[in-house]
Measured scan of single mutants.
Amino acid sequence: DHWEIRVGDITIHLKDVDEEIIRWVEEALRNGDDLEEIKRWVEEVLR
């Protein structure tokens, strides 16, 4: 699977990601969370 999350001008590409993570990231972006923080979290989860 390949996911693209778009929020404003930001697009995040994710592969082999659980839908729950996608929802979490979308929510975090909508809440204005720091992008670097989100990326770190996702990388942590995917490890």
Rank of each mutant, 00 (worst) to 15 (best):
D1F: 05
D1M: 06
D1C: 10
D1E: 11
D1L: 12
D1I: 03
D1H: 05
H2W: 15
H2K: 06
H2N: 09
H2F: 08
H2E: 07
H2V: 04
H2M: 09
W3P: 04
W3R: 09
W3G: 07
W3H: 07
W3S: 07
W3T: 10
W3E: 05
W3Y: 09
W3C: 13
W3I: 12
W3A: 08
W3L: 12
W3K: 06
W3V: 12
W3D: 06
W3Q: 07
E4N: 02
E4D: 04
E4Q: 05
E4C: 06
E4P: 07
E4F: 05
E4W: 03
E4V: 10
E4H: 07
E4G: 04
E4I: 07
E4Y: 06
E4L: 07
I5Q: 02
I5H: 02
I5A: 04
I5R: 03
I5L: 12
I5S: 02
R6P: 04
R6C: 05
R6T: 13
R6S: 05
R6D: 05
R6Q: 07
R6I: 14
R6H: 13
V7P: 01
V7K: 01
V7L: 09
V7G: 04
V7N: 02
V7R: 02
V7I: 14
V7Y: 07
G8C: 03
G8T: 04
G8I: 06
G8H: 07
G8Y: 00
G8K: 04
G8W: 00
G8N: 06
G8P: 01
G8S: 06
G8F: 00
D9H: 08
D9W: 00
D9A: 09
D9V: 10
D9M: 12
D9S: 11
D9Q: 08
D9L: 06
D9E: 08
D9C: 02
D9G: 10
D9F: 02
I10M: 09
I10H: 11
I10T: 12
I10R: 08
I10D: 04
I10N: 06
I10F: 13
I10Y: 11
I10S: 06
I10G: 04
I10K: 12
T11I: 09
T11C: 04
T11H: 10
T11G: 04
T11Q: 07
T11M: 06
T11L: 10
T11P: 03
T11Y: 06
T11V: 10
T11R: 05
T11N: 05
I12T: 02
I12W: 02
I12F: 04
I12Q: 01
I12D: 02
I12N: 01
H13N: 09
H13T: 13
H13F: 09
H13Y: 06
H13I: 15
H13R: 13
H13S: 12
L14F: 12
L14A: 06
L14H: 03
L14C: 06
L14I: 09
L14D: 01
K15I: 15
K15C: 09
K15L: 11
K15S: 07
K15Y: 15
K15T: 11
K15P: 09
K15M: 12
K15V: 11
K15N: 09
K15F: 09
D16N: 14
D16S: 14
D16Y: 12
D16I: 12
D16R: 11
D16Q: 12
D16L: 14
D16G: 14
D16W: 13
V17K: 12
V17Y: 12
V17I: 07
V17P: 11
V17T: 07
V17S: 08
V17R: 08
V17F: 10
V17L: 10
V17N: 05
V17W: 11
D18T: 15
D18Y: 15
D18L: 15
D18R: 13
D18A: 15
D18S: 15
D18H: 11
D18I: 15
D18N: 14
D18V: 15
D18W: 15
E19I: 13
E19H: 15
E19D: 13
E19Y: 11
E19P: 15
E19R: 09
E19S: 13
E19C: 07
E19M: 15
E19L: 11
E20P: 09
E20W: 15
E20A: 14
E20T: 14
E20V: 14
E20N: 14
E20H: 14
E20S: 15
E20Y: 14
E20L: 14
E20G: 09
I21M: 11
I21Y: 03
I21T: 11
I21P: 00
I21S: 02
I21G: 02
I21E: 01
I21D: 01
I21K: 06
I21Q: 03
I22A: 05
I22R: 14
I22Q: 07
I22G: 06
I22V: 10
I22P: 02
I22M: 13
I22H: 06
I22T: 07
I22F: 13
I22S: 04
R23S: 05
R23I: 05
R23C: 02
R23D: 02
R23W: 07
R23G: 04
W24S: 08
W24I: 09
W24G: 05
W24Q: 11
W24P: 00
W24E: 04
W24H: 13
W24R: 06
V25K: 00
V25G: 00
V25M: 06
V25I: 09
V25N: 00
V25S: 00
V25C: 02
V25R: 00
V25H: 00
V25T: 01
V25D: 00
V25L: 14
E26S: 04
E26A: 03
E26Y: 04
E26M: 11
E26I: 06
E26N: 05
E26L: 08
E26T: 13
E27P: 00
E27M: 04
E27F: 01
E27V: 09
E27L: 05
E27N: 10
E27K: 10
E27R: 03
E27W: 01
E27H: 10
E27I: 09
A28E: 01
A28Y: 10
A28R: 12
A28C: 02
A28M: 13
A28S: 08
A28L: 10
A28F: 10
A28N: 04
A28G: 04
A28H: 13
L29R: 01
L29D: 00
L29P: 00
L29W: 06
L29N: 01
L29G: 00
L29A: 02
L29V: 08
L29I: 11
L29H: 01
L29Y: 06
L29Q: 01
R30H: 08
R30A: 12
R30T: 08
R30G: 08
R30I: 09
R30E: 06
R30Y: 07
R30C: 02
R30N: 08
R30V: 09
R30D: 03
N31Y: 07
N31H: 14
N31K: 13
N31I: 05
N31R: 14
G32K: 10
G32E: 08
G32I: 12
G32A: 10
G32V: 12
G32W: 13
G32S: 14
G32P: 09
G32C: 09
G32R: 09
G32H: 14
G32F: 13
G32L: 10
G32D: 04
G32T: 10
D33C: 14
D33V: 15
D33L: 15
D33S: 14
D33I: 15
D33P: 11
D33H: 14
D33F: 14
D33K: 15
D33Y: 11
D34W: 15
D34F: 14
D34K: 12
D34N: 14
D34T: 15
D34P: 15
D34Q: 14
D34A: 12
L35F: 09
L35Q: 06
L35E: 06
L35V: 13
L35Y: 14
E36V: 07
E36D: 11
E36S: 09
E36F: 05
E36H: 11
E36W: 04
E36N: 08
E36C: 03
E36L: 12
E36I: 09
E37Y: 15
E37V: 13
E37A: 15
E37S: 15
E37Q: 14
E37R: 11
E37D: 14
I38S: 00
I38M: 03
I38T: 02
I38L: 07
I38H: 01
I38N: 00
I38R: 00
I38F: 11
I38K: 01
I38A: 01
K39F: 14
K39C: 08
K39R: 10
K39E: 06
K39N: 07
K39D: 05
K39T: 05
K39L: 11
K39S: 04
R40F: 05
R40M: 03
R40L: 03
R40P: 00
R40W: 02
R40S: 08
R40G: 05
R40D: 05
R40I: 06
R40H: 07
R40N: 07
R40T: 04
W41G: 05
W41Q: 09
W41K: 14
W41A: 11
W41E: 04
W41C: 09
W41M: 14
W41V: 11
V42Q: 01
V42P: 00
V42I: 14
V42D: 00
V42K: 00
V42S: 00
V42L: 15
E43S: 01
E43F: 01
E43M: 02
E43R: 00
E43Q: 02
E43D: 12
E43W: 03
E43L: 03
E43V: 01
E43I: 01
E44N: 08
E44D: 12
E44I: 08
E44S: 03
E44L: 02
E44Q: 11
E44K: 09
E44R: 05
V45N: 10
V45H: 11
V45Y: 13
V45R: 10
V45C: 03
V45E: 13
L46W: 01
L46R: 04
L46P: 00
L46A: 07
L46T: 06
L46D: 01
L46Q: 07
L46I: 10
L46G: 02
R47F: 00
R47P: 05
R47E: 08
R47A: 13
R47D: 07
R47N: 09
R47T: 11
R47Y: 00
R47C: 12
R47M: 02
R47V: 12
